[in-house]
Structure formats: C-alpha cells, structure tokens
Design a binder for these strands. Structure first.
Lengths: 144, 144
DNA sequence: TATATTTAAGATATTTTTGTCCAAAATAAA
DNA sequence: TTTATTTTGGACAAAAATATCTTAAATATA
C-alpha cells in the first residue's frame, strides 16, 4: 500500500509529535530507536518532510526534530503520504493505465473508486495529533 | 496498490478470457500486444498463474493460453492477486509491523481495517468472467 | 519421423527502492 | 572563538522489482 519510506515517515512523525506534546525535541537516533525505522534512511525521509513544513528540524547541540501543536492539528496523514509517495495512490489507475476515468475506464475502475475514496477519507480525516495522542496514551504501538 | 507484475497479470487474464469466450486460444505475443504488458515478463507471470490453475497453457503449434468458462466464473480477482502478490495486501499491517491486531494495534490499524475490508470485498466479489464480459462489450479498456 | 511452433525455465540485465557512510553546514554553549 | 553536537546533502552500496534473452521441452501436423 505505502512504500517503506512512507511507513517509516509516518512512524517517525508520530513519535516526534508525541515527544513534542511533552515539549521534548528529539534526535534522529532517538526517533529511529523508538519508531523501529533505520536511522540514516529515516533521516532522509525527515529531510523531505522538513522541506514540506510537516516537521521542524534544528541543527547543532540541543537540536533535533519537533512538531508544533498547530502543525500537528493541521497536518493530515494525507499530507505525509503525498509528500513521500506522491498522489498515485489517490489518483492513479489500479491497473496502471496512464489515463483511466469514468468515460474510458479500465476493467477495475468502478470497483476501485470506492476503495480509493475510502483511503482518501481515512487519510484526510486523520491528523498527526489524533495518532500522537492515541500513541501517547498507550493505545497503539510503533514497534513489534 | 498492486505490483506491476500483478497489474500485467490481471490485464493479461482479462484479455485471454475475452478471447476464450469466443473459443480463441491466444499466444503470448498477442496477449502482450492487446493488454499493454511486456511480453517476456508477462510470459513469466502467466507461468505462475498456470501453476495456480487460473489459466491453461498449451505448447506447440496452435498452442497458447485459454481459460475455460468454468474457471472464468469460479476464479475471483482475489485469487489472481494472491497468486502474484501474496496476501500482504489483505492481512499485512499498513505501517509494516510484523504483528498488528486489535489487541496491539499500530496507530493506523483501526482506520486500515475498513480499507482492507473494502479491498477484500471488491476482489472476492469480482470474477474473471465479470470483467471479461464487460471488456468484450467495449465498456472498458486495457490500454491507453 | 522431421519440422515448425509455442510455452517453460534459467541466466542475465536494468531500474527502482531501500539503505549506509561520510564530509559539510549550522548552531549552541563554554 | 573554539568545540562539540546535530541535521543536511552527496556519494555509494545492497536488495528487490522489473524486464529481456536464450535454450530446452512439448506438441501438432505434414
């Protein structure tokens, strides 16, 4: 469904946000250890998300990553997925046709529409804050 | 969503089935040309599907691929997807955790369940025959 | 039986994704 | 200003997915 990069990005963001809720800025090593994602690769992904203003980074001592409460509440999961994986999952044809729409649909088009809408809904109605608070309260896990 | 291999496999099967409806056995080159899939790669994928008894192959002159009406009506899209991509899309965790369930869910688990059920429903309620007849009647396209 | 045709299978090549490593840039604090 | 710390960015490496090529096996027909 999502690329590995996207999975790592989402998990990293949830961990960073959770720490930010307590006012703690976290280093990449800490993020990797607590989100179960490879450090260097995750650093790259966070670089992308930083450029998209989804997370904030600070170099130097006492630096690291953080997410403001405003960001957390505004940024949807969809923004993260789109920043990393692009919009293929939302708009691409299920069978890979370059163009596919109601007028000239691929054989699975009509069935696919429903699934894609479900995915869009799921990702646009969920904010970083939603998942971070649940994670912080221990209802969900990031590693296993 | 699906791998390229799976996309090619589905398109190839729909084309073969459509031709089988007219009693025509088709060669791999014909399949590739009419389904917009790379020939050699598609041949490999059809080899897999042949082993899974989703399609029948015949070597030698007048050989090629065909699908019986019985097969067409019995085989679900889910069978094709599972034969090629495995069951990760149906049972795997959306964030890549090795285990993830209602008791110890990843942060996206509950939201994901709905999407996965939608995908399962879509693929288990659709047979090859369904898509082949629609394609044959010109309602859908395989290339663009 | 000989020949032509077609899929099957194995080796190999290419591209993309995933992942690591290291030096440079930024920065906080002594 | 110097030093230690941290992200950033680029080069590089490994693995997986995608794709091709070539030969072998099967088979229909003359």
């Amino acid at each position: 469904m999502f690329s590995k990069a996207c999975e790592y990005g989402i998990k990293a963001i949830i961990y960073i946000a959770t720490q930010s809720l307590s006012g703690t800025r976290v280093k990449i090593g800490d993020v990797a250890n607590n989100s179960g994602s490879p450090e260097a690769f995750t650093a790259k992904i966070l670089g992308t998300l930083t450029k998209h203003n989804i997370v904030n980074s600070h170099t130097g001592p006492y630096g690291g990553f953080e997410i403001s409460s405003k960001q957390m509440k505004q940024v949807k999961m969809r923004d993260i997925v789109e920043a990393i994986d692009g919009d293929t999952i939302f708009n691409g044809c299920g069978l890979g046709l370059n163009e596919c729409n109601h007028e000239q649909p691929c054989p699975m088009h009509h069935k696919f529409v429903k699934v894609r809408e479900e995915i869009k809904t799921m990702l646009t109605t969920t904010t970083i804050y939603d998942l971070a608070t649940e994670y912080k309260s221990g209802k969900t896990v990031l590693m296993r």
